[in-house]
Design a protein around this nucleic acid. Structure first.
Length: 272
DNA sequence: AGCGGAACCTGTCGGC
DNA sequence: TGCCGACAGGTTCCGC
């Protein structure tokens, strides 16, 4: 589900609404989504207060007034929902519920690819150690990309999804960024020159920023913490649009499977 | 080392 | 109506 703009939207909303709230209790309804002993997890988080919410790539890191941080990933269908109702009913996909003095924070995830886990040493967490430069980070450089990709004959689309050397891009934004940069998703990475990679970085920044401005893309599952949808789905140029005319040249958009994922592109505009 | 493919789990939709 | 396969904003792991 959630790529960088969706996760960052959620981070901002949690940051403004959740910070300062104290946890009364934690109920784990699906132990497998807590990647550690669920009993220790619940016990240790009780009575903690949320202090900050950070993001690295598609991961969220919750900081508390004391004790280890909590790492969270939303997988394909994970959501964080905040509510303040008095007698909320447990929904079928509610996996973990944090009850605070002001309401609840619910981790809901239909497919259970997401997870929560405390970690004392977040800096060296194996999940985070592999991440490259954040997709919104201005320090992202074409030279770094050339260094990582310069000798690879793999297709550029697959490499963009690997979270290194760039972190935060997923299937939707890979398609949109490549369309904007006029690069074919099947192009072997080593064929891209520095100026192509510079353009790719420019479009990465532009598209991710724009999507963030519109609070991300809601296609089916993704919701903001107040259950509202994002709006960037209204601005998609190629993702999910196989058979529809290209917004630039009217040629039909094509679908292609790469690394077991769908890619969408315009065969006429994305020639490189 | 790097690659392709399977696995994790659940839900929805379209075709027969 | 029911069953079956395809597909879905992700990531890790295993075997070659």
């Amino acid at each position: 589900m959630p790529e960088l703009p969706e996760v960052e939207t959620i981070r901002r909303e949690l940051s403004s609404e959740l910070v300062g709230q104290q946890i009364k209790s934690v109920q784990v309804h699906r132990p497998s989504v807590v990647h550690e002993d669920p009993v220790s997890f619940s016990h240790s988080l009780a009575n903690r207060s949320f202090k900050q919410v950070q993001r690295k790539g598609k991961y969220l890191i919750f900081g508390f007034d004391q004790g280890p941080d909590m790492l969270a990933h939303l997988g394909m269908s994970g959501k964080f929902i905040l509510d303040s109702s008095d007698s909320p009913e447990l929904q079928p996909h509610d996996r973990v519920v944090f009850t605070t003095h002001q309401g609840r924070l619910v981790f809901s995830d239909s497919r259970c690819f997401g997870f929560l886990q405390r970690a004392k040493d977040m800096e060296n967490h194996p999940r985070l150690a592999r991440l490259g430069v954040d997709g919104l980070d201005p320090r992202l450089s074409a030279t770094d990309l050339k260094k990582s990709w310069g000798k690879s004959s793999r297709d550029i689309k697959t490499l963009m999804l690997q979270q290194s050397p760039i972190a935060g891009i997923g299937n939707i934004y890979a398609a949109e960024i490549l369309f904007a940069a006029k690069i074919n998703p099947a192009t072997p990475a080593k064929r891209l020159k520095l100026k192509d990679l510079q353009r790719l970085i420019g479009e990465t920044h532009r598209i991710l920023e724009l999507a963030l401005t519109h609070n991300g893309t809601s296609i089916s599952d993704y919701r903001r913490v107040d259950d509202k949808t994002g709006e960037f789905q209204n601005f998609l140029q190629v993702y999910g649009k196989a058979g529809e005319p290209c917004p630039l040249c009217k040629q039909p958009i094509e679908r292609l499977v790469q690394s077991q994922r769908s890619s969408f592109f315009c065969p006429q505009c994305q020639v490189l």
